[in-house]
Amino acid sequence: MEQYDLIILGGGPAGITAGIYASRKKLKTLLITKEFLGQVGLSWRIENYPGFPKINGRDLLKLFHNHLVQNEITIQNYEEAIKIEKLNTGFKLKTKEKEYNSLAIIIATGAELKKLNIKNEDRFIGKGISYCLTCDEKAFENKKVAVIGGGNTGAEAAISLLKFASEIYLLEYLDHLTCDEVLKEEIESQSRIQVITNAETLSFEGNEELKKIVYQERKTRKIHEIETDGCFIQIGVMPNTEFVKGLIDLNKKGEIISNLKTMETSHKGIFVAGDVCDFPFKQIIVAASQGASAALSAYLYIKELNN
């Protein structure tokens, strides 16, 4: 059995930063990730990470990764953690392929895109519906497209679609867009983007392909239809915590409850960082900062264990 001081789970900004900090503390570190991607890798335009006024998410992640591999760290890419077991000293981490032991663990497994779970959503995936803007926006050249979700990701999707789509609808459940003010201004200045607030999406309709989105205006309760060729669903994320249920405390959203000073979880020796924890602001710089804090806390914890 391979024994490490620290195992980091996740290959996004939180896990990568934790890896850099841990290896600089000379911890024998293993980073396991099911892929180097995270939510950052899906983003087409990042404008709020210092030092990079405008950068594509995958390019930023590539730079993070290049920085990581310059350090002394073992990386298992394309492996996924399925279980953590407590040992007398430390933990056993099981993936689908192997088992590893370590004194401490940092969970930075991030989050997956949420589905709406409404009528005909699955039926039209690939037939108009997509969750990956960078993959599929080009399929809607000169077509009408809707984006569901008025947060930063949704707003950025609507702006990106200006390159291809003829008309864009941006649907938001609340009575206002929740994205950054600069994005709001950009959207308001674009006549080809129509913002629809208070919209509860009810179903997708069509025959072979998506043709209509049905939504209810939440104040008047009136049912409306939008004719559209495509729809990008960008309504936020769900934490990847299935494999730690029952071992550490989670909040109602399934996020790992953390001590934000130390990034400790409810289980001694297990730390957390990034979108998977219960901090409300899901940002790249927050994830990176939490990755650093988690690695430094894990270092102090391991040092104490070894004394």
Binding site: E35, L42, W44, G57, Y78, T134, C135
Partner: peptide, 28 residues
């Protein structure tokens, strides 16, 4: 695939990680 497609990049990288060669059709 297409050059901006993040999942395309992951799939290609995974296959290359396995030492597998493939024909790529770039839709751009």
């Amino acid at each position: 695939s297409s050059p901006d497609c993040s999942y395309c990049y992951v799939v290609k990288d995974y296959l290359s990680h396995q030492g597998i060669e493939l024909e790529e059709i770039d839709l751009y």
